[in-house]
Design a binder for these strands. Structure first.
Lengths: 191, 191
DNA sequence: AAGGTGATGTTACTTGGTAACATCACGGTA
DNA sequence: TACCGTGATGTTACCAAGTAACATCACCTT
C-alpha cells in the first residue's frame, strides 16, 4: 500500500469547498482543510496552493491558454469581436455540463466573502489580459484589443453566472453566445 | 502640549508610502509604519485602516460619490456615454495638479506588488459599479450601464496612468478627455 | 542491496489582524 | 477648583496565514 493516498490536491479542493460552504470562508482554517483532506497538514496545503484563496481558483491558468490559442488560430481577416467570439466559444465549450454543480457551489461561496470576490476579480483581469495580448499579437490596436477582451471576459463571467444560477439544461456555450450577442447589442446603444 | 500629535492618519499614510517606496510593500511591517508615523503602534494603525493594503487606497470612497452625483445631475436626455463623460470630467477635475507627485509614487509602489494590484483592481471595480448604479437609476438598461461604466473606469485609470507617467504639465482632466475620446473611437473599430 | 527521489511531516518562526482592558490629556460642569 | 466623561491611544495576549529548514520513508532505479 502506498504511503500516501494519491490526488492530495483534489482532496484539498473538495475539503475546502465543503468547509467553506458549511461554515464560511473566514471561519475555516487551512489546518481544518488539510486535516479533512485525509489527515494532511498546513504545510502540504501551501505546497499545492500559494495561499488560502487560491484553492478555489487553481487551474484557471488554462483558461488564458484556451482563449489565447483560439485567437491565435483565428483568420487574420476577422474583426476583433469575431476573434473574441471564437475565444469565448472555445472557453465555454471546455466546460462540460457536469461541472455546473461545482460552479454553483463555488459561486455561492465566493458571493459570501469579499476576500474571495477580490481574488475572483483579479482572475477575471488575468483572463481579459490574456485575450488582449493575443489580440495585439494578431495586429489589433492597443485600446481596441483591451476593449474587445474586456467584452469577452464580461460575457464569460455573466454567462457563467447565468449558467450556474439557472436550473434549465442549457450549456455554458449556449449562454455565452446569448450574452455575447446581448453585449454587442448594448454597445450600439451606448451612444 | 497635546498628548498626541494630530493627524495620525495622514502621518500613517506618509510613513507607509515612504517605507513602501524605499524597501517594498512586503518587506515593510505595519509596526514599522506605525513607529515611523511618530511612535504609534500596530493597534492604532488598524484602527485607521482595515488592513495593510488599505492605507494606500483609503479615501477613494469619495470617487464613487463624485461620479454618482455627476450622473444624477446629468440631463435625462443624455446618452449613456455622455453621462459617463460628465462623471469622468467631475472625477478628473477633483484632482489638483499637486496631487500628481503623490500619484506617481503610488503608482510605482503598486506596480511592484501583486497584492496591491489586486486591491487596486478591486477599487476599480467599485468605481465602475458606482457609475453603473447611477446610470441604472437614470434609466439606462443593465448591460448598457455596465458597459458604459466600464468604459469610464477604464478611461480614468488609463488617464491617471498617463498623467502620472508623463512630465508635461497637462491636467488629469485633459488626459481624461483625450483617453475617453480614444476609447470611443476604439469602440467603433471593434466590429 | 544501495542510493536517489518525491511527497509528506515537524518544528519554529514572523507577521497580519483582533479583542479586552488600561491610560491619560482634554473639555466641560458642578 | 475639583470632578467626570470622552476619545485617541497603548498594552497584553491571542489566533491564523504563510515561510523556512530539516527529517522521514515508501517507491523506483541501477
Amino acid at each position: 500500500m502506498a504511503r500516501w493516498e494519491p490526488n492530495a490536491r483534489e482532496r484539498l479542493v473538495r475539503a475546502a469547498v465543503e468547509l467553506f460552504a458549511k461554515q464560511g470562508y473566514e471561519a475555516t482554517t487551512v489546518n481544518e482543510i488539510a486535516e479533512r483532506a485525509g489527515g494532511l497538514t498546513k504545510t502540504t496545503f501551501f505546497r499545492h496552493f500559494a495561499d488560502k484563496r487560491e484553492v478555489l481558483f487553481a487551474g484557471q491558468e488554462i483558461h488564458g491558454r484556451i482563449v489565447a490559442e483560439a485567437i491565435a488560430e483565428a483568420p487574420a481577416s476577422a474583426t476583433p469581436l469575431e476573434m473574441v467570439g471564437l475565444a469565448l466559444d472555445a472557453l465555454a465549450a471546455s466546460f462540460t455540463q457536469d461541472r455546473r454543480e461545482i460552479g454553483r457551489r463555488l459561486r455561492a461561496v465566493i458571493a459570501h466573502s469579499a476576500e474571495l470576490q477580490e481574488r475572483s476579480a483579479s482572475k477575471r483581469v488575468a483572463l481579459s489580459e490574456a485575450m488582449a495580448d493575443a489580440l495585439r499579437t494578431h495586429g489589433i490596436s492597443e485600446l481596441a484589443a483591451d476593449l474587445a477582451a474586456e467584452l469577452g471576459a464580461r460575457a464569460f463571467y455573466e454567462a457563467f453566472d447565468r449558467w450556474t444560477s439557472s436550473a434549465d439544461p442549457r450549456t455554458l456555450l449556449e449562454y455565452a453566445r446569448v450574452v455575447f450577442d446581448e453585449l454587442k447589442t448594448a454597445v450600439s446603444v451606448l451612444e
